[in-house]
């Protein structure tokens, strides 16, 4: 009787669903112990926020694309371009840096969407092509050098600002993804595009909108990169795509999109990435050790939590 009850409970618990949570807790506990209790210390809070800031905001936008079963390879290079345009705007007036960053991001997102929807090119190839184009534009725009922000703007890069931005973006992202028709339809497209189309969902427009959402988020990150580093170079944003994708997958967002894409996954994945990276630094591990451990953790997590039955070729 007791065994039967236990089996029923185990059946109810979908291990793959809770694994990302266990992964996060496991990472925190492990590094908390081996770093001598410094991972969850007040002093480390700032580093954790900074570490996860770009990832968590990036994933918040990216989940709309992933829910549709698409990918956007160009997120990092668009961020780099937006950082450069933000620097140009900041040169005119510091407050202009924000629209100068976000608007080009939205335009780049529209181009990605146009290439995918109107030219009927898969998101993988389409966004990869746009990535190269944007990189080329960035090199030309920077005239082979770099652009800098006025020093006064660097004062905006505070923990409070970052914290508030994270809360606002997460709240807005959660609301839109979970409760609005846009969010629900993004998931519907990922589950079965044909069924969504038959139900009257304007797939093309929604796909373009999702790419524009990611573009806007890339623009916002470009602005924050500018006030963080004070500079825009061709390398700005170069690691964003991989970090965002890893965080999304660590959080359990399926590559195939659909109903399996949960907003909580974005938060869990981002925090796991941040604690993992930060914890290894606190332990004083070398660069190569960090890469090794990150790779192993990533592989184990994906091997356990990845939903293979929904695996399809990325559209």
């Amino acid at each position: 009787m007791k065994n039967q009850k236990e089996n029923i409970v185990l059946k109810k618990i979908n291990f793959k669903t809770i694994f990302p949570y266990l992964g996060l807790v496991g990472v925190i506990v492990f590094f908390q112990i081996y770093s001598g209790g410094r991972v969850l210390s007040t002093a480390n809070f700032k580093a954790i926020i900074s570490e996860c800031f770009f990832i968590i905001i990036g994933v918040t936008g990216y989940i709309f694309i992933m829910a549709q079963g698409n990918l956007d390879f160009s997120i990092g290079s668009v961020m780099g371009l937006c950082c450069a345009t933000a620097a140009v705007g900041a040169g005119i007036h510091p407050l202009l840096a924000i629209p100068f960053a976000v608007v080009p991001g939205i335009i780049a997102g529209y181009i990605n969407g146009f290439v995918h929807v109107k030219l009927k090119i898969g998101s993988l190839i389409g966004t990869m092509s746009v990535q190269y184009i944007v990189n080329g534009i960035l090199v030309l725009a920077l005239a082979g050098g770099s652009l800098t922000a006025p020093i006064s703007m660097l004062q905006w890069n505070t923990l409070t600002v970052k914290f508030i931005v994270i809360i606002i973006v997460l709240s807005a992202g959660f609301y839109v993804f979970r409760f609005t028709a846009y969010g629900k339809r993004c998931r519907a497209i990922g589950s079965c595009a044909e069924a969504a189309k038959q139900s009257g969902v304007k797939i093309g427009k929604l796909k373009i909108a999702a790419f524009m959402t990611v573009g806007a988020i890339s623009g916002l990150l470009g602005f924050f990169s500018l006030i963080r580093t004070g500079t825009s170079t061709v390398l700005t944003g170069s690691e964003l795509f991989m970090n965002v994708l890893c965080a999304a997958l660590l959080g359990g967002i399926p590559l195939s999109g659909g109903a399996g894409a949960k907003f909580s996954s974005a938060v869990i994945g981002s925090l796991t990435m941040a604690f993992l990276t930060n914890g290894m630094v606190l332990m004083g591990l070398s660069t190569y050790d960090k890469q090794l451990i990150k790779g192993i953790v990533f592989l184990i997590t994906i091997a356990i939590s990845f939903e293979r039955k929904n695996l399809v070729v990325i559209k």
Binding site: E51, R228, T229, L235, N278, L282
Partner: peptide, 10 residues
Amino acid sequence: ADATIAFVEN
């Protein structure tokens, strides 16, 4: 620049 700032923060 990103790597430098991240290094200092961490």
